[in-house]
């Protein structure tokens, strides 16, 4: 498989952990992985973006207009990263999975038409609210991941994501992390 993905969010939202789940799934599938992450000052609340390229690639950054998937933990960051998504070629369109407080606000009406024209499939949910309800505000990333992984055309199956999450979680957090994924699946 070849899949190029962008995971976008704000420093501290758990973008790195979500990316780790992707690479763990790839490792399990024995698919080569290349990717690039944000470290350092930007981690302090700035915009954070991880590039992931699964399959036969040489370089770590996704070219603008080439991404198959955008997983966004924040509405503003989702808009900021939309231009990485590719237009539908012969096959299926690219996928955008975003955590937004208000589904009416995303995508912005000024870009919605273009996304439709490009065949981008958009799925939104309020992962923050769901995570807060679980008294685990920091697990919004996993709620979103669970939500995304149970959509059609997501590059991995929900089970693969769940297994990878279990493998990566510290023992103390495993059950709450998996509960967050399961919660996302139900959204």
């Amino acid at each position: 498989m070849n899949c190029q993905a962008i995971i976008a969010g704000v420093g501290g939202q758990g973008v790195l952990f979500a990316a780790k789940v992707f690479t763990e799934v790839a490792r399990h599938r024995k698919v080569p992985v290349l990717g690039s992450q944000t470290f350092g000052m930007a981690q302090r609340g700035g915009s954070v973006m991880t590039h992931l390229k699964l399959g036969e690639f040489c370089s770590p950054l996704v070219c603008e207009g080439d991404a198959d998937l955008l997983l966004a933990l924040d509405g503003v960051e989702a808009h900021r990263s939309l231009h990485y998504l590719r237009a539908r070629g012969n096959g299926r369109g690219a996928l955008c999975v975003a955590n937004v407080a208000d589904s009416q606000s995303f995508p912005d009406r000024r870009v919605a038409g273009l996304l439709t024209e490009m065949g981008v499939v958009v799925h939104t949910c309020n992962a923050d609210a769901a995570a807060l309800q679980m008294n685990n505000a920091l697990a919004a990333n996993l709620v979103l991941l669970g939500f995304g992984a149970s959509r059609e055309d997501f590059p991995f199956s929900f089970e693969e994501v769940r297994e990878a999450t279990a493998a990566l979680s510290a023992t103390a957090r495993r059950s709450t992390n998996l509960a967050a994924l399961d919660r996302g699946r139900l959204l």
Binding site: M41, R44, G45, S47, H79, L82, H83, D108, R110
Partner: peptide, 24 residues
């Protein structure tokens, strides 16, 4: 060159708030 990225132009017009790094 590949065709211009129309989404880049469209999202550029959204005037998205710049997220500066900030203290935790």
């Amino acid at each position: 060159a590949r065709p211009a990225n129309r989404l880049l132009a469209a999202t550029g017009a959204l005037d998205l708030a710049v997220r500066r790094p900030t203290f935790c």
